[in-house]
Design a protein around this nucleic acid. Sequence first.
DNA 1: GCTTAATCGAGACGGTACGTCCCGTCTTGAC
DNA 2: GTCAAGACGGGACGTACCGTCTCGATTAAGC
Lengths: 214, 214, 214, 214
Amino acid sequence: MPEPDLPGAAPASVPGRPAAERRPVVGRGEKVRAAVLDATLAELAEMRYAALTVDGVARRAGVHKTTVYRRWKDRDALIVDALTGQLAADIPIPDTGTVEGDLRALARGLASWLGGPSGAAVLAVMLSEAVQAPGIVEARARIFEDRLRRAEPVVERAVERGELPAGVDPAEVIKALAAPLYFRVLITAEPVDGAVADRAVVATLAAARHGAFG
Amino acid sequence: MPEPDLPGAAPASVPGRPAAERRPVVGRGEKVRAAVLDATLAELAEMRYAALTVDGVARRAGVHKTTVYRRWKDRDALIVDALTGQLAADIPIPDTGTVEGDLRALARGLASWLGGPSGAAVLAVMLSEAVQAPGIVEARARIFEDRLRRAEPVVERAVERGELPAGVDPAEVIKALAAPLYFRVLITAEPVDGAVADRAVVATLAAARHGAFG
Amino acid sequence: MPEPDLPGAAPASVPGRPAAERRPVVGRGEKVRAAVLDATLAELAEMRYAALTVDGVARRAGVHKTTVYRRWKDRDALIVDALTGQLAADIPIPDTGTVEGDLRALARGLASWLGGPSGAAVLAVMLSEAVQAPGIVEARARIFEDRLRRAEPVVERAVERGELPAGVDPAEVIKALAAPLYFRVLITAEPVDGAVADRAVVATLAAARHGAFG
Amino acid sequence: MPEPDLPGAAPASVPGRPAAERRPVVGRGEKVRAAVLDATLAELAEMRYAALTVDGVARRAGVHKTTVYRRWKDRDALIVDALTGQLAADIPIPDTGTVEGDLRALARGLASWLGGPSGAAVLAVMLSEAVQAPGIVEARARIFEDRLRRAEPVVERAVERGELPAGVDPAEVIKALAAPLYFRVLITAEPVDGAVADRAVVATLAAARHGAFG
DNA sequence: GCTTAATCGAGACGGTACGTCCCGTCTTGAC
DNA sequence: GTCAAGACGGGACGTACCGTCTCGATTAAGC
């Protein structure tokens, strides 16, 4: 993780003392970090990836360029860090009682994220230069994997309830649900709305019930 | 000022027209153009998008940088042009006699293109900076739309044969087929092989038969 | 010599044509070079060596920083070049008919140069960082050697006239003449005027006549 | 605010005074000061002036950068201080019984100092940026003046012995002796050895005897 | 085959951003 | 009261490309 300078959450130093008290040292440090990451996201939102300037981010964060470089190796490291933070935000996992309800909730949540400015920006960057630049590829895979995994319980519950045949691969189901939405955003540039989400649910369920993912 | 940004104009197309009117002057021009586009693709193949240099392309094409700028407005125009040409290559539309066979052929063709170096490079670039830069977004949408449309007859024939219910939206079927493959390449960075293609076929067919696209 | 880019005074190309006509190509090139060197000297004159900024020089020359770096590898290379040009200005070699007259003329010329702003600035820079930085050391030695050598005929004529004993080493005599002046400027920071010059002449002549340099 | 810029204050000098009055508080202070000055000289010895880093000096002295800045206003003050201490080292004034012997001893001592690493480093720094920066110019003049003055008795004794004509200016003689040596180190970058020293002695004596310094 | 105009080669140039190095200041906790 | 530790603002460095421009040198068409 790109935090070369900071001692890293105080590796269990002075373990006897209450944790809240233990590292007021850096002080401004944390504030700066947050300001820079916010500024990075803001800049990404209003201009595209390649146009983002370290100097611009620094200025917006009220900080000097050098300070940014002290904490992040690269423009890329900075961006990845900012986006990682953004994506780490928890996605609520629905539990409506039926697969259809759960999947619909998931799909609509994803659709509205993809449709909104945040989703667009994040995706744009995650895929910029993506297929090659090593740091980003890895980060991207890790992040999305995590998001997918968190959604798998929805499928497992459906199997337990007998709504889906035993043996379905939960990961495959979730991917099948998400794929058409991403496809529209990234490839055909069609709008992604609730209707699209619903259609994905129907298709995914039909496929799952007929053993396409088992 | 020469503004041959768009690839179209089909090399030596419409030969019937009088030569005096359509600037047959070019002479060496066409050879240079081809060399530069080839060089562009070659450079894209071995380095990533952002690392591509106009000077590098020019050198590889045995041409001077100025010459490149004389024909393409900027780096992006050059790249888009090169890739457009690449994508314009005809995709054979299968006609095996069954939907399953046809879809399988389509899916496998796509999978092997996505898996190969060409597919990776093209995708990387098409999505670089993509979500914002207007020229590229449009070009991208146009290109993929075209590819999708050319595949639609496969579905139409299936409906005629009674393999799929009347009323299925051919475009939707094709998108459903392609989406999981793109998803794996772009999001989860999983390898895309024949097995993945086959699973997409099964899922798509199941969904289509149960009215998900109707 | 720091001219990596320029083809170097056209190495006898197209020797048949009149020289004045032969290389209008670069055109602005030579003008830029001169402007930058002038700006460098001007900046050196009003601020000291370490405070000289490439950007400042460029701005003063009405030129972009990059352009400076295109022609000179370094801040140091730029400075050395500027000073070399400055020092290359011919020193008139006196021929008054007597050694004493000649030496007096040389000494006074040197004294007034050393006393003036130009001499001070040049010396300051030539010796800044001097004992180590390879480029400067070499340039310095070369330049001063050249100046000394050009003055040697004065001594040779004196020997021919019988004013100085045969066998005197001309170089030694000139060095002996120059040394006290430099010493005062560099070490004791005393003013260097005509009186000092005259004393150096007397001392040098006395020493030379009594075989100190033979 | 501590401003111990000047070296003077003779380490633990005037021990007769009551301790309470002259800040015996320092405690560790004096040790740190010495360590830093030593480190400064060491760094100067192995790299050139401009490459000397406050951080580097501090590290070598086993001390933190802040501590250095607490005691010296800036890099220049530190360097001047270190070198001043270096130069304050006594030069033995010879008394061989003859001017020639004395001057030879002086000249050879100077030559070997100038030839050695210490001399080179000190000179390099003393002249770096020198002609302008006020603090250094003054310090330089003061130091060399002091060294010259200490050597004057040699000449005075020679006059008393009748070896040199009455009325010779001792300072001029010493300068005439030293000048050629400095000249070779600083200007022509020739090696300075015993032979050069001896020649300076001969020339200086000849000049002095014939009234060049009287 | 000779001329004439489009095209090309060559490369300097202004410009933007990069990432690095060091300076000197400041805050904070520890000995 | 010093000192260690180190983040920070700041200024300059030297580099890499971008896209523009001005020329001479080609070169291929059309007379």
